[in-house]
């Protein structure tokens, strides 16, 4: 694959200073409260060792005597334990589709995915969340885990720059691998066009309900939304960017109409599946500016606050 001239080559090209400044005020949020590895800044349903009182319960043998409320024992002569809410950190998992189909469109879907991943990762890092990134595609499965803190921003950026969009996605295997190796609970954001021959259902099923609050960001290039407006007409031979398969098509008004119906059906099927599995499906045209996506679009969807 030849290197595109407009592909980002430095971290600064993935995320610039003004965007970083605007993202500093954001934090990743989750519809759930998760237990983290270390105490974080989020409440958890688990009773823990935070300072926020939760409840009392009678003492039973084996309980930690440090949590006995001696004031109540003095008044009632009975032992009660004092329970507190435990605060946990957030695990942010970024799953980036590095298949060949992502390296297409204007703007390029893969570049757009990397910019969005960089911005989301930056938000996670500056809020001391545990950030993990996974790239999957024909180039293989590339994990980057254990990032925390603003100083790891460059590491994340460099990792994104090193990714290549080639070959088949291997989405099912990638999702299963991510689900099996998860560390704690958190928010998982999948950046993909979801153009998988075997479908995305099996892969998404692997991660849904496994402790992840999953967001499926479906990237759509403008050429995919309306190929007729982008010079696709006449007798053509389509080459699949992933597997090199060829399809001969005579692009007519009927064919374009049928393609539009197929596109809607594909997106609708993905959305319905996501709804059933508690996954947030967000179709993202790549013409949407990244800052607008994060500051407006995803905030309204509850991913950022």
């Amino acid at each position: 694959m030849s290197e595109r001239a407009d592909a980002p080559k430095t971290v600064d090209q993935l995320i610039d200073g003004p965007l970083m400044a605007r993202l500093d005020a954001l934090d990743v949020t989750s519809r759930k409260i998760f237990q983290g590895k270390v105490q974080g800044e989020r409440r958890s349903r688990r009773r823990g060792q935070s300072v926020e009182f939760a409840d009392f319960r009678p003492y039973v043998a084996g309980d930690d005597l440090r949590f006995v409320d001696w004031n109540i024992y003095g008044r009632l002569d009975r032992l009660f334990l004092k329970l507190f809410l435990e605060e946990e950190d957030l695990s942010l998992v970024l799953a980036i589709d590095c298949s060949g189909s992502m390296d297409w469109g204007t703007p390029n879907k893969f570049d757009y995915a990397r910019r969005v991943a960089m911005a989301l990762g930056y938000v996670g890092l500056v809020n001391h969340n545990r950030v993990s990134a996974f790239g999957f595609g024909g180039d293989g499965f590339h994990p980057l885990t254990g990032l925390r803190g603003r100083r790891r921003t460059r590491d994340l950026g460099q990792w994104l720059l090193d990714r290549k969009a080639v070959g088949d996605a291997g989405f099912d295997d990638a999702m299963r691998t991510i689900a099996m190796g998860r560390q704690g609970r958190g928010v998982m954001i999948v950046l993909s066009d979801f153009l998988f021959r075997d479908g995305a259902e099996k892969g998404l099923r692997s991660v849904a309900g496994r402790g992840f609050d999953v967001y499926a960001l479906q990237l759509i290039a403008p050429e995919e939304r309306d190929p007729g407006m982008h010079g696709l007409t006449g007798d053509l031979r389509f080459i699949d960017s992933e597997d090199g398969g060829e399809v001969e098509m005579t692009i007519t008004s009927k064919a374009l109409e049928a393609y539009g119906q197929a596109t809607v059906a594909h997106a609708t099927a993905l959305r319905d599946f996501c709804v059933r599995r508690g996954i947030v499906h967000v179709p993202v045209p790549t013409t949407t500016p990244v800052d607008e996506l994060l500051l407006d679009y995803l905030r309204k969807r509850g991913l950022l606050r």
Binding site: M102, W104, L195, R237, F238, I239, S241, G245, A262, H266
Partner: peptide, 22 residues
């Protein structure tokens, strides 16, 4: 026919009757 690379032929193939391109 002139060749055009597309992201995926997935959505096109649903309306093509004959895929024996070769």
């Amino acid at each position: 026919r002139p060749k055009r690379t597309v992201a995926s032929t997935l959505l096109w193939t649903r309306q093509v009757e004959d895929l024996r391109a070769n």
